[in-house]
Computed example of a mutant assay.
Amino acid sequence: MADQENWISAVLGFGGMLATFVTAVATIFLWRVTKLLAKETTRMAEASDQPHVVATLSPNRWSLRHFDLVVDNTGNATAYDIQIQFDPALQNGEARREDAKIPFECVSVLKPGQGLRSYLADVSILEGKAFEVTISWRRGSKDKPRETNVYTLDMADYAGASELGRDPVIGIARSLEGVQKSLSSLTGTKRLKVDLYTAIDRSEQKRRAARELRRMRRARIATQALQSQQGSESSDPRPTPQELR
């Protein structure tokens, strides 16, 4: 009987030790999984909250033969101290002075979704070229490291591009320009004079018209009375002093 009790005690003790060991292993495993999950969550949060600046050459809205330099922050965080380099270097077109500075080489700040656009050159200057674009920026103060994005921008992407019809906004703008020219030719000046009347001006105009109407009515009544008086005098049968003589 005593041996049986010792055997049961030994089994229970071994079971308790085994349960303690399993619990310790599970705790260690859970700690490692929790730590890995926290690290991955932090990495995803940092990855989803960062700027991403891209510089491209895009056809102008008014003409496919003319290109604009466009800089966009496509990320969801603000980019600071942006520096942009093109290799080979960009050249100004015929509509810009040759000594004019290439725009957007340095940009102080771009908010998420914000972009900058400026006319650059005719397609003849850019055609057949491939640029290596290097863009770097900071996510905050100068103490933070710079982030760099390097890619190739090939103008062959626009080869064979054409347009069907015109942008409705461009059509409206040109129509308004034609209307302005027509009005200028009629008035002889580029500026159109406009007289603005308020409700007070209209009320005063109505009062003046009413006074003028009453004056004309009184004048007509007076004229009719004078004519009636002259008619009665001419029909009087009494002899005049000349006739009595």
Rank of each mutant, 00 (worst) to 15 (best):
Q224C: 05
A209R: 14
A222Q: 11
L110N: 05
M216E: 15
Q180Y: 00
A26K: 14
S232F: 13
I102R: 04
N149F: 09
Q85F: 11
I102M: 06
T20C: 15
E147H: 09
A156V: 05
Q83C: 07
Q205T: 09
R61T: 07
D167C: 10
Q50Y: 03
R202D: 08
I82G: 15
Y197E: 05
Q224L: 15
L18K: 10
I82H: 06
F14Y: 12
A10T: 02
E94G: 08
A130S: 06
A209T: 03
T41F: 02
A222T: 05
V71C: 10
E46V: 03
T187Q: 02
A26T: 08
S232W: 13
M44F: 13
R43M: 10
A219C: 02
A121P: 00
R202P: 00
W31F: 10
P59C: 01
V109F: 05
R207N: 08
D99H: 06
I125L: 11
T223G: 09
K193H: 08
T20R: 05
L90T: 03
T74E: 13
L126H: 01
V54L: 12
S108F: 00
S136K: 13
R117A: 08
S184Q: 11
A159Q: 06
R61C: 02
L192E: 02
G13H: 05
C106S: 09
A159I: 05
D201T: 00
K190I: 03
G93W: 02
T20L: 15
V11T: 12
A95V: 06
R207S: 11
H52E: 05
T56V: 12
K193W: 02
A159C: 01
F14N: 12
T187D: 02
L186V: 12
A26D: 08
P59A: 07
L64E: 09
A173G: 01
S136D: 11
R65C: 10
R174P: 00
I82W: 04
G165Q: 00
I172E: 10
T42V: 06
D87V: 08
V33F: 06
V133W: 01
T240V: 13
R146F: 04
L69Q: 14
L126W: 08
A219E: 14
Q83M: 10
A95H: 07
L153E: 01
Y80T: 04
M155P: 02
G140K: 03
S9M: 12
G188L: 03
G178K: 13
Q4L: 10
I28H: 10
A77W: 04
L30G: 14
R61S: 07
A38V: 04
S235R: 14
Y151S: 00
Q180N: 09
G128S: 01
R215S: 10
Y197F: 13
Q4N: 07
D154Y: 01
E233D: 10
M44D: 13
A89F: 01
Q91K: 15
P145D: 10
N6F: 12
